[in-house]
Amino acid sequence: MKFKALTAAAALLIAMPVMSLAEPDDDHLVINGDLEIVTKTAAPAHMEETGIDTIMSGWHFRADETQQLEMDDFDNPGMIFVDQAIDSWNAVEGSAGKSCASCHDDPSSMEGVRAVYPKWNEAAGEVRTIAMQVNDCRTTRMGAEAWKYDGGDMASMEALISVQSRGMPVNVAIDGPVKAVWDQGKELYYTRTGQLDLSCASCHEQNYGNMIRADHLSQGQINGFPTYRLKNAKLNTVHARFKGCIRDTRAETYKPGSDEFVALELYVASRGNGLSVEGPSVRN
């Protein structure tokens, strides 16, 4: 009896910190003391059938120490890569003798872009991600080599483009010409893969807030991408994250930049319609 009580007391002590982590917190994200970020808001109408009424940034699922790294641009290591991307932005490359700046002037001309991508490109007749658009500029306008879809140069450029829209609400279109691709993305979101037989929804819709081993499951929102992860100390792209998740279900994954991942990105982005653009965010 005595032993049992002691064990229960010990269990309580051990369990408390873990339990306190089990719900997303109510902290408030303000960057640099003046940039208000919407990290919790009402779910968009198309999510009615999911049972989720509040959408939340992954920021709420992280420990205070990790959250703080995103509250000041100097403390955010992702901003190093934004600095590097400014150099790439101004660097002339390729046979046309152009840089990004040759056509787009200052990076601030990209304001609003991150909030509405992936987006329909009428001339190309396809849904384009920011990375696809960057590589299209590089190959067709600059005459330069395409960057690796989820490589460091691309992640840094995506971070620079994202920063221009920070604080603006994500607002990707889900109907009209993108409808078929959005439907495909939704289908993939609910498709179980791998030996573990998990879909995106298994973790990020049905179990967000719970622990998966020592990790706190988020809603899998992508408004904060590209994301600086403490784990690998670099910027991580959305498609690299998708690949990692599907690999973790022990499945063969789609490739970064594939039609499947573009469709999935559109669908997952639309689940964050209303949250602020937050990238480059900081996660564990």
Binding site: G58, M211, R213, D215, R229, G244, D248, R283, N284
Partner: peptide, 8 residues
């Protein structure tokens, strides 16, 4: 130091 699951 916790050993993570998947991260994110």
């Amino acid at each position: 130091v916790t050993i993570g699951g998947c991260g994110g």
